[in-house]
Design a binder for these strands. Sequence first.
RNA 1: GCGCCCAUAGCUCAGGUGGAUAGAGCAACUGCCUUCUAAGCAGUGGGUCCGGGGUUCGAGUCCCUGUGGGCGUGCCA
Length: 562
Amino acid sequence: MSDIVQKAELQLCQAINAAAAKAVQAGALPALPVGAFQLEVPANRANGDLSANAAMAWARELRLPPRKIAEAVQTRLDLNSTYAQRCEVAGAGFLNFYFNDAFYADILMDVRARGDDYGRSDYGKGQRILVEFVSANPTGPMHMGNARGGALGDCLAALLEAAGYAVEREFYVNDAGNQIEKFGLSLEIRYRQYFGEDIELPAECYQGADIAEHAAAFADIYGDALLRADEKERRAALVAFAMPKNIEGMRGNLEKYRIEYDTWFRESSLYANGEVERVISLLRESGNTYESEGALWFKGTDFGLEKDFVLVRSNGLPTYIVPDIAYHYNKLVTRNYDRAVNILGHDHHGYTLCLKAVLPSLGIDVSRLDIVLMQLVKFVQNGEVVRMSKRTGKSITLEDLLEQIPIDALRFIFNLREPTSQMEFDLGLALEQSSKNPVYYCQYAHARICSIFRRFAEEGVAMRACTREELARLNAPEERELIRLLASLTGEIVTAAQHYDPARITRFCMELAGLFHKFYNACRIKGEAEPLMQARLNLCAAVRDTLASLLRMFKITVPEQM
RNA sequence: GCGCCCAUAGCUCAGGUGGAUAGAGCAACUGCCUUCUAAGCAGUGGGUCCGGGGUUCGAGUCCCUGUGGGCGUGCCA
């Protein structure tokens, strides 16, 4: 919470409790109430700036009508050392408080004093969080379905940092297991086809053109020597050739998307360092596994799952979930992050239940793993749903998307809705009507403010610091609303972090820009008396800097001119 | 069949641990630029919060139930 807002709420709670105590002494209340109550911002401004439901909360306990309790408290309130100028009893028994001038002035001074730091807090107390996102398979180019996860994961990481966590970003590279076998097989067949062999590419193989391109590139460099090599060796050589190119390609695309990872974690390293074997033996030791039909099963039903599931197949190979278990063991035990946050498509929810069911058997507290199940995006163009199929290779790649649509717009739009809500992305709209994009609305507000300062600079007028009394002159409704919104930022960042929901911040930006535009149309700056003009310039600077720091936090550009 | 998520204005969506007259953006219509950026602002119209029960001072929000969508439910990942 912002220091000022927090202080204001604390003061009012104390004032209410003190008034209640006085009411008891005076015999207006039968006993000192102990029930908890809340202070909240009313939906309707006519009901004050902060509203307390104490009287309703105490009604049952005191066996009195809420309204009567409210009046007993209200008449005994001492607001002298608070940020409230008055309190009214309204509705069913709400105590509605109205902020005084000092509140508005102090908020603005706080915003100006803290600059880019405003809104940030130490709520997370430096806890170490590992945010894993995208983690696309290195068997081909990323498709546009990865776009939401990228924007969400990166902005969520930034949000958690702003809320005081020590965050690292990680990409999990699935460079082992079955899909790599399939990748090798696909490359091999394309390679043999390249030299004229008449063989079909099986349906279960990767059908994309990129596979054939890799095979051809390999052949152009190394020739047909591999045709005579052992099958296993041939596939390994092709994978060793193609996969690093794919990984570099992903890294490059993600950089264009302004995403940089602290770590690219290899699945293969879990086999190499023995952690895959280690978790299997730990799970055996836990007593929560059994053998059946030659396979090793985990007793999922003992942990609330519908059915048991296989850990090690009868052919001796672990299923996909085992390296993932090892990976989370690595995150939470080996590397000992306080918390792991994964962004996954909602179609993985069955898998996440399995993963969470297993962790306690490794001595890991499940609450340390949070999985954000993001709904998949439905891409629409010309009124038709654009299908994404990696197998047929006909999907739009992430690279195409990044080239067609401005990065600012992508990063903003994908964070406009909460992760769990299904969203529709109209490609045509994003392309043709990009000027109507909400991100421009925010950027425009910033550019507008910069323009104001440029004009003043041309006339030799510079902004100066204002006194509390001068800032208190900002009492137009539009000004007060703007300042109240600024006041709520710190709390909003904490709430957004708690919900893993960066959309709260993009919407905050929209609201801040909107309130600024309203202020701009309602209030003049130039031509006003010097103190008021300066106070308004301070307000403009506060909005400008807050908008800029939030957009920068999400790695969205902040133009000074549009 | 079973499990998870969802249903709010014509469209896309907000509505922290239950609070006062349910909001915003698009779209439609009407106004506002000789004065700080009109990528803006002001205003108008627009609702059975999917249906039905229940919990209580009070339900879009919580519980049950029905309907309609999305997804999952492989010794695939």
